[in-house]
Simulated assay, not measured.
Amino acid sequence: MAKWPPRNPDAIQLYSLTTPNGVKVSIALEETGLPYDAHLVDFGRNDQMSPEFLSLNPNNKIPAIIDPHGPDGEPLPLFESGAILLYIAEKSGQLMPEGAGKWEVIQWLMFQMGGIGPMFGQVGFFHHFAGKEIADSRPRERYYAEARRLLSVLEKRMAGREWIAGDYSIADIAICPWIRNLRDNYRAGAETGLEEMPNVLAWLDRFLARPAVQRGLRIPARG
């Protein structure tokens, strides 16, 4: 792709930004060791609306990938972070158990995609970004309450567990960046009850201590 020329044409090409959805994929790639090139999609320049990026994702959201060696030996473009995590797990043979455990991981991945991501994103808008200027407090309180409810589900789930679905998996990689973002970027830990959830916080600490996670959180780097 002319806009983002590959440094290694045989590697997976990642087009992303260090948002919670973006770092899911860079972390998974770092954890598995699959070769990849990371390209910054700069929202400040509206890269996500460029014809080149829209050819990968017509929904103009990061992340997206191109695997030059897809399942049939042909290049495979792919968007939606959850779909990309499933693809990386299958391609690498890592971060996903077999049998019934596979579906346990997938259900928690869907929990993130359908609940955690959308609701935490609304908390970010109404608590941290332009929505905080809206005088009506009802939308903000609604999303605080729903975020608290979702975190309570996780707090119960993580009692006595190291990872959310057996061994470390793409489910942990999907959820934990959003919890980190809620606490550290949106700074809404008090309003959503996160500060009162020791199981979730301990899980987040374990996740953030992983070397591959620490690397992935910084990819793609800004120039």
Rank of each mutant, 00 (worst) to 15 (best):
M96R: 11
P211T: 10
G166N: 02
Q122D: 05
I12Y: 13
T192S: 01
A147S: 15
G166K: 13
G115M: 09
P51V: 00
V213L: 08
V200M: 12
M113C: 09
L85V: 08
E74S: 13
H69N: 15
V41F: 10
V213W: 12
A145C: 04
E195G: 15
G166D: 00
A38V: 00
L14N: 03
A188T: 00
Y168D: 01
A83H: 10
S92A: 11
A209E: 14
W163G: 05
Y87M: 09
L109C: 07
R180F: 08
L151H: 06
E191N: 13
D172F: 06
F43Q: 12
E133V: 00
A171K: 12
P68N: 07
N21K: 10
L151D: 00
N199I: 08
M110Y: 14
I134H: 13
L154G: 03
T32E: 03
N21R: 11
K132A: 10
R149F: 05
P63H: 14
V23Q: 08
F129Y: 14
V25N: 13
I134Y: 14
L201D: 01
D47N: 07
L34K: 10
P6C: 01
A100V: 11
G117S: 08
V123N: 03
I27R: 03
G44Y: 10
E191L: 07
V23W: 12
W163D: 00
R148M: 02
L154I: 09
G33E: 00
A89D: 08
R161P: 02
E104W: 09
G33M: 01
L34A: 01
W163E: 00
A83K: 08
A2S: 14
A171H: 06
T192K: 11
E195W: 03
S137G: 10
P198N: 05
E195A: 13
I179N: 03
K102N: 11
Y15A: 10
G114I: 03
G82P: 03
P51R: 14
F53A: 02
A11G: 04
R215K: 15
W4V: 01
Y15K: 12
D167Y: 07
S92K: 12
A159Q: 15
F129I: 01
L109K: 06
Q13T: 01
I219N: 06
P35G: 02
I173G: 03
A188F: 04
L154H: 05
E141A: 09
K24P: 03
V213E: 04
E146H: 00
V200W: 09
A159Y: 01
